[in-house]
Design a protein around this nucleic acid. Structure first.
Lengths: 343, 343
DNA sequence: CAAACATACTAAAACGTTTTAGTATCAACA
DNA sequence: TGTTGATACTAAAACGTTTTAGTATGTTTG
């Protein structure tokens, strides 16, 4: 009935030895600390018998390590981030870390609150998709020697570990692919954001257009208008204004989704008539009609690189010694929607 | 340089009072414990000045509460679960709880490992999508007075809080909808699982078929074969064997995805010719061609009901007092794919 | 004027670990 | 014979809180 949780203390008491000895044995320091073979075995056996599990809270308090990592993204329900989360979860658990996920909605205030929250919760490390204005907060973390790796975007003039894809290369290649397929009036639909990933994506598109002597046609949707209804209106106007468009490049997965919805609602034929490329792949793109060409980020590589950066930092005394910026290439999944079916 | 973290002890020392007093004030017990207005204010002011944040690990150790909840699902990268996660995250944070997500892959061993892990990590409560064989593990949790709410499925003969949708009603209605639209040879593609949610879904389908005097045609794909390639083969055979099928009902979102892929690969016309319903909605279904009819689970209601059950338990002494089993209705999103376009 | 009560504050234990700085015993060496 | 060194073990502090059980005053009350 009164099933007391078994602690090191109870083990020590029941075996008539000190807690120190028990602790040493349980931490595998028996040899080093000159605990006899017999006693060591006795403790081990007894611990197993009573199913002893260390109280990790107590361990954390004493050691200052919580074995908890934070994975902070824009929105955990976004397919891209949840897929990453799944992979990171596996790697972390294998290494004895648990992961707390949270969504910052790309909002500075929320990001800062969450970071502060977890800092005082003594988490061991952060993987962060930073909102635009938290450079100084990130810097503080680093200065306090707390391991951080940035994901998806970074701050140009902040020396911080990061894993991002080569967005410029990706959109350059994708745009070039459209151009090679005889598309000429390629519209680029993006968000009005200063963040590196969006700037780079825009840059790659512009570079490809310029290189081919084509006219860039860009729609920047204010970030506030990400709510479906309003961004649909922006897209509608854009399509109306630039009547000559023969193809559209969506710079994020949710924009692609919204855009396809607009097509579906207003003029279904556009889905077949226009060339379409979406940034970020989706499982359903390959079974859409037409199948949708997309820029697929290497989920597995991103996750493993993130953890390859973060894990060593957790052991390190000085976090700042070496910072690395990993740049990965995205893969263009060429499907029907970018095919050579010019009007 | 030497930025010592500020603790209750340093506050007490600097103010020349006892830690007890500081603790009382900081916990809002000043009045109750007869701390004078002046001193109370002094402590409050000083704490703010030095930006004191309690060490939650220490608090947890002392109080036995971690303010951490576990949200354990089959696969956090599955759209259904990640959407739920996002909502639950918000509710939890608002109430001062953090959430650890984990994926059990519907595997008993992994589920048990994770539960054990978190139990000894002193999490305050669990939301669990249980794998088939962990009834006794769940029972142990309850017996140890640890708050648990089951999600999506449950154990028939275990008295445990749960939030599930009325799967039988949902598939009954959906199947009936197909029947009303003149479909007669309706195939039901599901997994070979004994779990309640799958049994109920099958049951609802069968009930509707029987009621209309139609012949049930069911494909049960072994759970092990959930890997794409093998389940595709099962679906292919099923379509070949039952040549007369005029419609298909997919019992899970990943089966729908796999099925649509098979159509796309083998006989694209089927997507338009067959009646199609998928269990679980997907953002892209409403922009597919044809748009796909689906059974949409009420994500918001499920999440809020889960938290409405769990939160009070966290405060309660005895978890077993009242257990509630919440049954929610799913919504049939009627779209083109189930329309009256019989061959 | 003593007992009772209210007010203002605190010492110290407790939560369950880890780790430093020991002690005690015995053998070996010189 | 006394120092050195290895072996086997432990007491107690520390991590930062919360909380129980106080103490020391001053103020009513019968």
């Amino acid at each position: 009935m009164k099933k007391k949780t078994v602690s090191i203390k109870t083990i020590a008491a029941n075996l008539n030895i000190s807690v120190t000895t028990v602790s040493f044995v349980l931490n595998g320091k028996a040899k080093e600390k000159h605990i006899s073979k017999e006693l060591t075995q006795k403790v081990l056996d007894y611990a197993k018998e009573v199913n002893y599990k260390p109280n990790q809270i107590a361990q954390s308090l004493r050691t200052g390590k919580s074995n908890i990592l934070v994975f902070m993204v824009e929105d955990i329900s976004n397919n891209f981030f949840s897929k990453l989360a799944r992979i990171i979860e596996d790697i972390a658990y294998e290494k004895g870390y648990k992961v707390i996920f949270c969504s910052n909605e790309n909002d500075d205030k929320k990001s800062e609150e969450l970071i502060s929250l977890f800092k005082y919760r003594q988490v061991d490390g952060f993987i962060i998709v930073p909102s635009p204005g938290i450079k100084s907060t990130i810097k503080e973390l680093i200065d306090e020697n707390i391991p951080v790796v940035l994901l998806d975007r970074y701050f140009a003039d902040l020396d911080c570990n990061s894993v991002v894809i080569d967005n410029e290369e990706a959109t350059f290649n994708a745009t070039t692919h459209l151009i090679n397929n005889k598309f000429k009036n390629i519209g680029f639909i993006t968000t009005d954001s200063d963040q590196t990933q969006m700037q780079d994506r825009l840059g790659g598109y512009q570079k490809a257009m310029t290189k081919s002597g084509l006219n860039a046609q860009v729609l920047k949707i204010p970030y506030i208008a990400t709510s479906d209804s309003r961004s649909k209106d922006y897209i509608r106007s854009f399509l109306k204004e630039s009547k000559s468009l023969d193809s559209v490049f969506f710079a994020t997965n949710y924009l692609a989704q919204t855009g396809l919805e607009v097509f579906k609602e207003d003029a279904p034929h556009l889905i077949h008539d226009l060339g379409i490329i979406a940034f970020d792949d989706n499982e359903l793109f390959k079974i859409y009609d037409p199948t949708i060409t997309s820029v697929a980020q290497p989920l597995f590589d991103i996750s493993t690189e993130l953890m390859k950066l973060l894990l060593p930092l957790l052991k390190r005394k000085d976090v700042k010694e070496t910072t690395k910026n990993i740049l990965l290439s995205a893969e263009l999944k060429i499907r029907e929607s970018s095919g050579a079916k010019v009007k």
